[in-house]
């Protein structure tokens, strides 16, 4: 039942969230997390390719309630308003849909958070794209977060990498990304928004799975070094799992 779509129940309402966090802290080490997963278990992943017909390549990714869509345009000639570069340019733009989070965002234009996520996304992808072959051209990557329930950046990186592959842009390797959060001395793979909020710190790792080269490593909050190391290891395992699914999806697409 790999990569098969079944709609899920809506995430629990805000009141229920509070109850659950208090219940979690009373039990020191729950066997299962709020959604019945083990600590080292990924959420259910759903991938789709070619979802935006006008784009050169596109992908859609779902980690339960985190939903991300990405469209890639190009390669095309570089626009006049940016500095000319002999090598190819990769332009990433990440935006949250106004309805992505429980509270509707009223901000017009890109927020600082979105700009930071865009920059991180670009860094994570840039290492995997063969920019030397895209002389004097630019590739645009547009990511829209449709629903944010934890692990948004990781989902965006994975989804964008698939969209690049779908656009037949030459890549050294795919990029798979994964997040882990540390809460109550326990490392949780692929946390939900609720778990992220409760956690003391989190780690994001993006790797090129074949060569196991890390393209992005982002750490937030306070983490003891042993826990940080454990979180990175867990992320690497998670990325390997995600990469298997990415490859399977791409192969299925080519076979068709």
């Amino acid at each position: 039942m790999l990569n098969c779509y079944t709609p899920r129940r809506a995430p629990p309402a805000a009141v229920a969230v509070e109850e659950q966090t208090s219940a979690d802290s009373s039990r020191k080490r729950p066997e299962h997390r709020g959604d019945g997963r083990k600590a080292s278990e990924l959420r259910r992943v759903y991938l789709d390719l070619g979802v935006v017909s006008q784009a050169s390549g596109s992908a859609y990714l779902e980690l339960d309630h985190t939903k991300v869509i990405c469209a890639v345009y190009g390669p095309h000639a570089q626009s006049m308003d940016t500095a000319f570069s002999e090598e190819g340019q990769l332009k990433c733009d990440l935006r949250m849909a106004p309805f992505a989070q429980p509270k509707r965002s009223e901000v017009r234009g890109q927020t600082d958070e979105e700009r930071e996520l865009s920059a991180t996304l670009q860094q994570a992808l840039e290492a995997s794209v063969r920019l030397d072959l895209l002389t004097k051209t630019a590739v645009d990557v547009y990511v829209t977060v449709l629903a944010a329930d934890g692990g948004v950046l990781g989902a965006a990186i994975t989804c964008a990498s698939l969209a690049l592959a779908n656009a037949s842009i030459e890549l050294f390797d795919l990029v798979a990304a994964c997040t882990a959060a540390c809460a109550d001395g326990q490392v949780l793979l692929d946390p939900t928004a609720q778990e992220e909020a409760a956690a003391g710190g989190s780690v994001l790792v993006a790797v090129m799975p074949s060569s196991r080269e890390v393209t992005q490593w982002r750490q937030r909050g306070r983490l003891p070094s042993a826990q940080a190391a454990a979180a990175v290891e867990l992320c690497m395992d998670g990325c390997a799992g995600v990469a298997t699914m990415m490859r399977a999806r791409l192969l299925a697409q080519v076979d068709k």
């Binding site: 995997s128 890549l171 390797d173 795919l174 090129m208 074949s210 192969l251």
Partner: peptide, 9 residues
């Protein structure tokens, strides 16, 4: 055979 980016041929 069919390959994906990063796969050894």
């Amino acid at each position: 055979s069919i390959v994906v980016p990063g796969q050894v041929i």
